[in-house]
Design a protein around this nucleic acid. Structure first.
Lengths: 149, 149
DNA sequence: TGTCTGGGTTAGAATTGTTCCAAGTATTGA
DNA sequence: TCAATACTTGGAACAATTCTAACCCAGACA
């Protein structure tokens, strides 16, 4: 983990009256280590490897603190478990409906959406559902190029 | 409800081996009647007014059938209950974080998003979180009222 | 040093939203 | 008419999340 990031996280938590406890450090490290948008349960499993005593309730608590301090994002792509993502730059998500993997995608500079008048935007969430490169050829739908391998 | 719409829904269901039962008609009518993106529970409450015997399981069944036949959309804007929407034209959603109301918004013609190569898009979901006109002037705190019904 | 205060952690209970199930009902086709 | 099949129902089961009560620990202060 980048030390400057850790310092910034520490500060960000402190500013809101949260402590950067060993559990929160571990949960944040898990998010940074493998950026595959894990669910809370998956974070729990990974965090347990180095911290076997950690509980699910604590993982939820830590994720909640990280999200509140804008150090991680909660991503709700489908029904079922929420996913978490330490990438705080504006971005959208590509969700593969076959393998359920999630990829970050850049957002266009100017979305140019006509909002109801008077609205104040806090954030955008763009989710794109489809098939990733690995899964696209799998089930032949319309015409697609066939790849060997 | 527009008769042509109803006929089309009937057909669409039939094409997939579903029947347009009185319960499904009622659930669909509820969606058309008040386009405020109700949750399944809210649909249940509204459907009961004209059909007191209807059960929650049936409401879920009906909503599921309508979504499968592409007559309604399931909208997952936040954690918690899914919402339903009979507007099948491409559009996004503005979600007011204060009053929790949802508004349809038009999408820009060309989204222009750089996807990972080889991806095949099935659908976009754009969610914009913020404050609606009624809630925007409020200071961070609770204002705005949720409508009952 | 002891103790007070307040956030943090834990296991497990509770809650919420959804799906599953078994039994009975309605509709369709032979 | 009978059989096959889809549908509805209430309630059980389930998954994800939140809540609760007990205990823990760091820092402030006497």
């Amino acid at each position: 983990m980048d030390l400057r990031d850790e310092l910034r996280v520490d500060e960000r938590l402190a500013r809101r009256g949260f402590r950067f406890t060993p559990q929160r450090q571990q949960v944040y490290a898990v998010l940074l280590q493998q950026r595959d948008h894990p669910t809370a349960e998956r974070v729990f499993i990974r965090a347990k490897r180095k911290m076997p005593e950690i509980s699910m309730a604590t993982v939820y608590n830590c994720l909640d603190a990280l999200v509140k301090c804008e150090v991680a994002r909660l991503v709700a792509l489908e029904r079922g478990a929420a996913r978490f993502c330490p990438n705080m730059r504006p971005h959208g998500h590509f969700y593969c409906t076959v393998c359920e993997r999630v990829f970050d995608v850049d957002l266009p500079a100017a979305p140019g959406i006509a909002l109801p008048p008077g609205c104040r935007v806090e954030r955008y969430e763009l989710a794109i559902h489809g098939r990733c490169a690995a899964c696209a050829p799998a089930r032949p739908g319309r015409r697609g190029k066939r790849r060997s391998g």
